[in-house]
C-alpha cells in the first residue's frame, strides 16, 4: 500500500505543502534573512550583519515592552490558572446547574480579541471615571491591570474546561479509597486531585504562558500601548516598529526584534516539551 500511495504525493501532499511554502516557509526564511539586512528602500535590502540585533538590544522601548510582557505573563498565568482550577473544582462537585455555569464561563473565548478589547475599554473607563481616576489610556498601571482582568475573563473558561476534563478522568476508586481512609477534602485535593491532573496543569500553564507573550489584539484594542508606549507588550512593540515609524531602516529593526521574539517563544515551547516528556516517563 505504501508503494502505491507514494506516487500520489502530488494529490495528497502538494496542495497543503505549496500553500505552506507561500504562507510559512518562504516568509519565514526571507524574514530570517531580512533581519540581517539594511534597507535603503523597502525593496532594496543589503547585508548588514548584526547591526539590527545590536539596535534591538539597545532599544529602551523594546526592553520596556519585554518587562511589560514578562510581568503580564507571570501575573496572568498565576491568576488564570488558580481561578480556573478553583472553578473547575467547584463545577465537578454535585451541584445544580454545572452545565449552565460551564457554558457561561466559556463564552468569552469565542469572541475575538479586538472586540473583547473594546468591550472592556468601555467598561473599565466607566469604572475609572466613576472613581475619578485617570482613564486607561492615561495611566499604564490601570492599563496593565485592565489587561489582566480582560485576559482572565477571556481565558478562565478555556482553562477551566481543560481542568474539568482532567478532574473527571481521575478514577473514582482513588477518591473513594481516600474517603474511606478518612482523608479530609484538603488532603484529597493536595494528595490525589492535584498530582493526578498534573498533565492538565502543564498544558494550561504552557498555553497561558505563550498566550501572555503573544498577546496582541487585546493589547492593541484596550490600550494601544498608551501612554507613551508604557503599556505595550512585545508583540505590539514589534508591530509599531514595523508600521508606525517612517523610514525603511525600521523594517530591519522590526524583523530583528521579531526573530528574538520568535526565539523566546520557541524556548518556552521547548521547556514545555521537556516538562511533558519527563512526566510521561514517570507514569
Amino acid at each position: 500500500m505504501q508503494r502505491s500511495l507514494k506516487r500520489w504525493w502530488p494529490v495528497f501532499l502538494l496542495p497543503t505543502f505549496a500553500a505552506f511554502c507561500v504562507g510559512f516557509i518562504y516568509p519565514f526564511i526571507q524574514g530570517l534573512y531580512l533581519s540581517f539586512c539594511k534597507f535603503i528602500t523597502i525593496d532594496n535590502p543589503t547585508w548588514n550583519g548584526l547591526a539590527n540585533y545590536i539596535y534591538a538590544f539597545t532599544d529602551a522601548s523594546f526592553r520596556q515592552s519585554f518587562l511589560f510582557s514578562a510581568a503580564f505573563t507571570i501575573v496572568s498565568t498565576l491568576a488564570i490558572n488558580v481561578a480556573a482550577f478553583a472553578i473547575a473544582l467547584a463545577l465537578t462537585r454535585a451541584i445544580k446547574g454545572t452545565n449552565l455555569f460551564r457554558t457561561v464561563f466559556f463564552m468569552p473565548n469565542l469572541i475575538g480579541g479586538i472586540v473583547l478589547g473594546y468591550i472592556w475599554q468601555i467598561l473599565l473607563n466607566c469604572v475609572l471615571s466613576l472613581l475619578e481616576k485617570p482613564l486607561l489610556s492615561l495611566d499604564a498601571t490601570y492599563g496593565f491591570w485592565g489587561l489582566i482582568i480582560l485576559m482572565c475573563w477571556q481565558q478562565i473558561g478555556y482553562m477551566m474546561i481543560i481542568y474539568i476534563a482532567g478532574l473527571q478522568s481521575i478514577p473514582s476508586d482513588y477518591l473513594e479509597a481516600a474517603k474511606i481512609d478518612g482523608a479530609t477534602s484538603w488532603q484529597t485535593l493536595w494528595r490525589i486531585k492535584i498530582p493526578n491532573v498534573m498533565p492538565s496543569i502543564t498544558i494550561c500553564t504552557f498555553l497561558t504562558l505563550t498566550n501572555g507573550f503573544k498577546l496582541f489584539d487585546q493589547n492593541l484594542a484596550l490600550t494601544a500601548g498608551e501612554p507613551a508606549h508604557a503599556s505595550e507588550g512585545l508583540a505590539l512593540n514589534i508591530y509599531y516598529t514595523f508600521y508606525a515609524r517612517s523610514g525603511p531602516q525600521w523594517k530591519g529593526y522590526g524583523q530583528a526584534k521579531a526573530v528574538l521574539f520568535c526565539l523566546l517563544v520557541i524556548a518556552i515551547s521547548l521547556i514545555q516539551l521537556r516538562a511533558t516528556r519527563s512526566k510521561e516517563v514517570q507514569q
Binding site: Q2, F17, F216
Partner: peptide, 30 residues
Amino acid sequence: TRVNTWWSKACYYLFIFSMVVPFQMLMFTL
C-alpha cells in the same frame, strides 16, 4: 502517516514547527 519516508517525516516536523512560530515573525514578509 501512511508513507514512511524521510521527506514525509520532514514535512511533518516542519508543520509542527510552524505551530510554535509567532505571527510577528512572518507578518512583514508575508
